[in-house]
Design a binder for these strands. Structure first.
Lengths: 131, 131
DNA sequence: CCGATTGTAACTAGATTTGTTACATCAAGG
DNA sequence: CCTTGATGTAACAAATCTAGTTACAATCGG
């Protein structure tokens, strides 16, 4: 969210293509860390990358057309809640039957999270950030 | 959820007080791990503990009166989403302004998660588990 | 060919989690 | 009042994960 919000502000200031170094300066971290995140956003189609001379990154869409849901799905691969570390005791009715129930509950939670994140766009975040 | 569901089933079978060793056998882990979780559930008032001779744990309420929201709040202390690891660049408008916005978004997400978890009780989980 | 930037591997340091051992503490009941 | 079977908790090992860092090959416009 920080990365895309910063790119939106740069775009508004006329800077269309930005480098991972410039983004890293705002987040206050290393450029490689930013490139790892930008790579995922690129795989999700939210940003485009240019290599070679004059290389850098640009938003693939207008900020108002990028929802936080898309950012979440691009960046977060693990489920919000994990099941047991090990396998529960299969001799026990609860150990045997609980995992599908947990998955069902967790699916409902993830759905509600997705619905909530879909309500907000990067443009909304930028507007609230500079306010 | 596994711990409380198992205790509900034990209660239904007439075993009112159970030990951390018995619960650990169903989860397939060490009793100390279970005691750590049960300690949090006790602090939240979801289970009662008895020490000394004949010690053990019992549900403090009927399973239908324990919601997954209460379990979540008892067991999970960290926020669902974390902010930046380090402090963003305060010289930058985005670095300076984005954290309150993130908190605002994350609060909305947590609220929707809580609302979802409040819909289900341990009794529901048990019914679905043994089905 | 030059030069600036991306892509990515490899590594360190730190934090976190699970499981484990050990032992002090507790209280019911003989 | 002592035995007994459990809890409470500290301390530690092993595994896993993340951020940050360094290094360098790959890319491509000019």
């Amino acid at each position: 969210m920080h990365v895309l919000t910063w790119m939106s502000l740069a775009h508004r200031h006329g800077r269309d293509v930005v480098t991972s170094d410039q983004v890293a300066a705002s987040v206050n971290t290393n450029a490689v860390v930013i490139r790892r995140t930008l790579g995922r956003l690129r795989d999700a189609g939210l940003v485009d990358v240019q290599r070679g001379q004059g290389a850098g990154w640009r938003l693939a869409r207008a900020p108002k057309d990028i929802t936080l849901l898309e950012v979440y799905q691009a960046v977060e691969e693990d489920a919000l809640f994990a099941l047991h570390h090990g396998t529960p005791n299969q001799e026990c009715p609860v150990g045997r039957g609980i995992q599908p129930v947990l998955r069902h509950v967790y699916d409902g939670v993830e759905d509600s999270v997705r619905g909530e994140l879909a309500k907000t766009s990067i443009a909304d975040v930028l507007a609230e950030t500079v306010a």
